Amino acid sequence: MADGRVIALAALALAASALAGCTVAGTPQPSPDPGLVSRYFTDLDAAAAQGVRSEQQFLTSTQVPAFADRVCDLNGVTITATPTLATLRPDPGWTVPGSDKRPSGSVYVVAVSLTIRQGNSVVGTQIGSQRVVVDGGRAYGFAPCPAQ
């Protein structure tokens, strides 16, 4: 019974440190601003509702600055994203695949449900993770690259 209590207390301490925005080792991580991240996705979807050109402009203007050269053409589709903000968490060790550059600011990961449309037709859906970078009080993302 005592072993069970120790395990329960250890689990509670681990959960408390996770909720406080710390890694298990105790390195402090900034807490994400769910409102700022939520607005990023709301603005993304609003741009998509206005069409491919508007969404392309939004993605170009909110691309993580260190990766501004990696904005893809949307190839005639719009992409909306519904984040599950309860999954939003710091991801300080993440690096962009295929790059040795790190984004400045704080990197967060959140589960999203993506819907890809061509005109009024849904041509694809996907559930996955998306990184958002908060730097200087602004949220940035990584423009998706639809299959050509």
Score class of each variant (00 low, 15 high):
residue 3 D to L: 07
residue 3 D to A: 02
residue 8 A to Q: 13
residue 8 A to R: 10
residue 10 A to K: 10
residue 11 A to G: 14
residue 11 A to F: 07
residue 13 A to R: 03
residue 15 A to Y: 12
residue 16 A to E: 05
residue 18 A to T: 12
residue 19 L to E: 11
residue 22 C to L: 09
residue 23 T to A: 05
residue 25 A to V: 08
residue 25 A to Y: 09
residue 28 P to G: 05
residue 29 Q to I: 09
residue 32 P to A: 13
residue 34 P to Y: 06
residue 34 P to M: 06
residue 35 G to P: 04
residue 39 R to A: 15
residue 42 T to N: 08
residue 43 D to A: 04
residue 48 A to Q: 03
residue 50 Q to I: 05
residue 50 Q to W: 11
residue 50 Q to E: 14
residue 57 Q to R: 13
residue 57 Q to V: 06
residue 58 F to K: 00
residue 58 F to T: 01
residue 61 S to C: 08
residue 62 T to G: 07
residue 64 V to T: 12
residue 64 V to F: 01
residue 65 P to L: 12
residue 67 F to V: 06
residue 69 D to H: 05
residue 70 R to E: 14
residue 71 V to K: 05
residue 78 T to D: 05
residue 78 T to C: 13
residue 84 T to S: 05
residue 89 R to G: 03
residue 98 G to P: 15
residue 101 K to F: 00
residue 102 R to Q: 08
residue 103 P to I: 00
residue 105 G to V: 01
residue 107 V to H: 00
residue 108 Y to H: 10
residue 109 V to L: 12
residue 109 V to N: 12
residue 110 V to C: 10
residue 112 V to K: 04
residue 112 V to H: 04
residue 113 S to L: 12
residue 113 S to Y: 05
residue 113 S to P: 00
residue 114 L to W: 02
residue 115 T to L: 07
residue 115 T to Q: 08
residue 116 I to M: 07
residue 119 G to W: 15
residue 120 N to D: 14
residue 120 N to F: 03
residue 121 S to D: 15
residue 129 S to C: 02
residue 130 Q to P: 01
residue 131 R to Y: 13
residue 132 V to M: 01
residue 133 V to W: 01
residue 134 V to K: 02
residue 135 D to A: 14
residue 138 R to G: 06
residue 138 R to E: 03
residue 138 R to P: 00
residue 139 A to G: 04
residue 140 Y to P: 00
residue 140 Y to K: 06
residue 142 F to R: 01
residue 143 A to G: 07
residue 146 P to T: 09
residue 147 A to D: 10
residue 148 Q to R: 14
